[in-house]
């Protein structure tokens, strides 16, 4: 029997965000937007969902006078991402 895929990660944009955050210590909203080629509104909604699940933390601050949102993956997020990739590999093999 195949393991169940985490529905929170089985979404294109959320998966893209988690993939980026799994590789870096933290990333700013503008970087995530550019890398995922998404709209600010959509990205913001998906980030909130990941944050609500405890997969990422979101820190809002300022860079000079400009508002700056920084996202960071949590240990729970890393674990969920690993399990998701393991499950995907089982599906394929």
């Amino acid at each position: 029997m195949f393991p169940k895929l985490d529905p929170l990660l089985h979404s294109e944009l959320r998966l893209a965000v988690m993939s980026i955050l799994a590789e870096v210590e933290s990333a700013e909203f503008s970087y995530l937007k550019k890398q995922t080629d998404s709209t600010a509104g959509n990205l913001s909604v998906q980030i909130d969902k990941l944050s609500a699940a405890g997969y990422i933390t979101v820190e809002k601050g300022f860079k000079g006078k400009m508002p700056c949102t920084t996202c960071k993956i949590t240990p729970e997020g890393i674990e969920a991402f690993k399990n998701y990739v393991t499950a995907l590999k089982e599906y394929i093999s």
Binding site: L5, H10, S11, E12, L13, R14, L15, A16, S19, I20, A22, E23, V24, Q35, T36, D37, S38, N42, V45, Q46, Y84, V85, L88, K89, Y91, I92
Partner: peptide, 24 residues
């Protein structure tokens, strides 16, 4: 353009992870 509601196969998901990681 990433689409939240797009249904992905396992292969597509792995490809997406690979593509995003490489780009970043």
């Amino acid at each position: 353009k990433t689409n939240e509601n797009k249904e992905m196969t396992a292969q597509e998901s792995l490809s997406l992870i690979n593509e995003v990681l490489n780009k970043s």
